[in-house]
Design a protein around this nucleic acid. Structure first.
Lengths: 202, 202
DNA sequence: GCGCTAAGTTAGTAATTACTTACTTACTTA
DNA sequence: TAAGTAAGTAAGTAATTACTAACTTAGCGC
């Protein structure tokens, strides 16, 4: 049934490894993912992993880089060409939600990495990701104020923090219910509220 | 300097152990806290811990119970006697922020527990805590709608999710900056936005 | 088809970790 | 003060984990 792993060129094997970790993180605590579990999930022996990665930490770094690249590309593509800053924020929000539904392990890995005390390479990648993300949010919010779509007295940084909190709240909720799909049905309602907070007081 | 631990009665020793874990979680990844580290932090040998707790899991359960009791008591006390639902939410919010500043390890532990795949006793306590928390939020929001302080068409559950997200966003932000105190200065701005979203559209 | 190299396997190792147990010390109370 | 008990110590153990090294096998260029 599981005769033996097909041989793959090194870069492909690395790609597949990253995918395996992302998948595993969807169903178990990322900090408890062992190299043995990763290898097993790929139908490979544990030792083979170390032909392609110098250490477990290097695997995590590759995983976080994959996440950073894909997520930023995704929200950029979603907001591309949208002149309305509010519409752009909404598009970024919804594409982020879809990303999480497709890869439920991602928010868990992100939080897990940021939690670390030491500054590992993987943690630094996660930090840079959020910084870049916040930059993009800040730009759109500033635009929104300039164009009159958002309240002129809006606290840009608070609005960026709340945007991320919006998603975090949904993630928290889905972890409680255990059903990731729920995040999709709850998302619009939460964003509607967020939108109101940007528009200004009554 | 550190001659030997003073002997303590069992219940006091358990209390001190919980405090030690909470403290440790403030400066390191909760999932990496070992029983040896806990014991060392209390100036005790590792073996002594198991005189008072059947297992490490039992320690975590006690810790989460401590958190649940204190946090719920704190937000209840803060909102007590406030007739305005909006003012009550704000009081709960601010007292929660103060709780986090006093015990920065708590949100990390909460998230870490909820992340677990298996249903451990500690995880169940964390789940119950959030459920109770959400209940209280829901009550106040419903009151706010009934009294006209909040938009009548407000999505109660979305508002509760966003409330928690509000705090989660601040926690995320503080984990990035590495400075927990920042959460205190950023908190009012974020709550101001949240408040706007409850009041209703322009 | 031959030979070289990249990829995978197998069976380790050292370090760490939760937990145990036999013994010792401190405290209480009769 | 003597005895009993609760609390703490010291030195383990078995299991797990990341990583290694000696070997086997697959696949590609000539």
């Amino acid at each position: 049934m599981d005769p033996r792993a097909k041989q793959l060129p090194a870069d492909e094997r690395r790609t597949v490894t990253v995918a395996a970790v992302i998948e595993l993180a969807g169903s178990q605590n990322p900090s408890e993912i062992t190299t043995a579990a990763i290898a097993q999930h790929m139908h490979l022996t544990q030792g083979a992993l170390f032909r392609h990665f110098a250490s477990k930490e290097a695997i995590w770094q590759a995983v976080m880089e994959w996440v950073a690249d894909r997520l930023l590309a995704r929200i950029d593509r979603a907001a591309e060409g949208l002149t309305s800053p509010m519409a752009a924020l909404q598009a970024m929000y919804l594409s982020h939600i879809e990303f999480i539904v497709a890869h439920p392990g991602v928010p868990r890995m992100m939080f897990g990495e940021l939690q670390r005390a030491e500054s590992t390479p993987a943690k630094r990648v996660a930090q840079t990701l959020i910084e870049r993300y916040a930059e993009r949010l800040g730009q759109r919010i500033e635009q929104g104020k300039a164009l009159g779509e958002m309240a002129p007295d809006l606290d840009t940084q608070a609005a960026a923090v709340l945007f991320i909190g919006t998603i975090q709240g949904l993630v928290m909720h889905s972890m409680l219910s255990g059903d990731i799909q729920q995040i999709r049905t709850r998302a619009p309602g939460v964003f509607a509220l967020y939108q109101r907070s940007l528009r200004g007081a009554a």
